[in-house]
Nucleic acid binder design. Structure first.
Length: 204
DNA sequence: ATCCCGAGGG
DNA sequence: CCCTCTGGAT
């Protein structure tokens, strides 16, 4: 068993493009840690699209019960594996249109795959980036798509790949949803968030 | 607009 | 207890 591919652009564990795609689908409204916990067993049982399809929706569900939305995710991952076999020769497609045609894959997931797997300078706007971009004021928007367009204008293409994951890490560990650690924030002085001073002091 | 939906944190 | 976690389909 190989170790997980070290990748500064995601904290999800995977050993192939297919496994990354599945891991990202599983990560909806769930923490990476929770996904890695159950994906280990899932990928051991079904490392390829063919094996995943044969494992079946029920078999997949058994591995991911600890995740939220596990019912819909099991259905998506199973149908997704079938679609890869039937329409893409078992390979993960490298175009946005093809990716978004897959069950359980929307714009956000497609952006993550395009960036992480194929090196495209996309920015996937998830819950973290949506919050951080609005608070900082660098790309305010009422929808994820609006924020994405704003970020594409503001962030130069050559640093976008890194910016994507750095923004997520900032949102996860510093600019958290409920109790932001503004006192420890390196971006405090350039942050436009009106409420930023409310939590200047860390709880010790 | 609403549903799906478990685990961890505060 | 309530909120949040790298959303997508209906």
């Amino acid at each position: 068993m190989r170790a997980a591919i070290p990748d500064p652009r995601t904290e999800l564990h995977y050993h192939s493009p297919f496994q990354l795609l599945v891991a990202v689908v599983l990560s909806a409204q769930s923490t990476d840690k929770a996904v890695n916990l159950c994906s280990a067993g899932l990928f051991a049982a079904a490392p390829t699209p063919k094996a995943m399809w044969e494992l079946g929706e029920e078999g997949i569900r058994a591995h991911i019960r600890s995740l939220g939305l596990f019912n819909a995710k099991a259905r998506h991952v199973h149908a997704l594996s079938g679609a890869l076999l039937q329409r893409f020769d078992g390979q993960v497609p490298n175009s946005r249109e093809a990716l978004e045609s897959l069950p359980g894959v929307g714009r956000k997931t497609a952006n993550v795959v395009l960036n992480t797997l194929f090196g495209e300078p996309t920015i996937a706007v998830d819950t973290h980036i949506f919050r951080v971009a609005n608070r900082l004021g660098i790309a305010p928007g009422k929808t994820p798509l609006a924020v994405e367009k704003g970020l594409l204008e503001v962030v130069p293409a050559d640093v976008r790949k890194d910016a994507h994951h750095l923004l997520i890490l900032h949102g996860r560990y510093t600019c958290t949803a409920r109790k932001p650690r503004c006192a420890d924030c390196a971006l405090f002085s350039c942050c436009a968030w009106p409420d930023k001073t409310l939590w200047q002091r860390s709880p010790s």
